[in-house]
Design a protein around this nucleic acid. Structure first.
Length: 117
DNA sequence: AATGTGACATACC
DNA sequence: TGGTATGCCACAT
């Protein structure tokens, strides 16, 4: 058969991103760069966001709203169904957001490396 | 095969 | 203090 969209059965770089993103604890957030580093591809931070974009086609629910840039800014909110959905979901998880900027970002920041513990 | 693209990150001016 | 420029690399066309 053809590789309909993104087959999560393949060891694509995307899949790795999805795997990590899916493990982000509730009410916590992480950055693209952190995920990239965890995948030994710190220089492919852009791909992380790119992967999130592909998550639209995924059947699995990827908490892309828990992934923000290094500044804790909701740069990708624009890619959601509605620009307000991202911060809306985060707020539902107890994340305080002001002007698309996550408050206390360092406090709720979650590093994928914690998986090793 | 080659070119374009991007939900980042960093450096520089 | 904030915009511009460049690197970076995997995916799309």
């Amino acid at each position: 058969m053809n590789k309909d969209y993104y087959d999560d059965s393949k060891p694509d770089f995307f899949k790795q991103v999805f795997q990590v993103a899916a493990q982000i604890p509730f009410g916590r957030v992480t950055s693209y760069g952190a995920i990239a580093k965890y995948l030994s591809a710190a220089k492919s931070s852009r791909m992380v966001g790119y992967a999130m974009n592909a998550s639209h086609s995924l059947k699995s629910t990827i908490p892309a709203h828990r992934v923000v840039n290094r500044n804790g800014l909701l740069t990708g909110k624009n890619h959601f169904n509605t620009p307000t959905e991202m911060e809306n979901k985060l707020k539902s998880e107890g994340v305080l957001i002001i002007n698309d900027q996550i408050q206390d970002f360092e406090n709720i920041f979650w590093d994928p490396k914690e998986l090793d513990y």
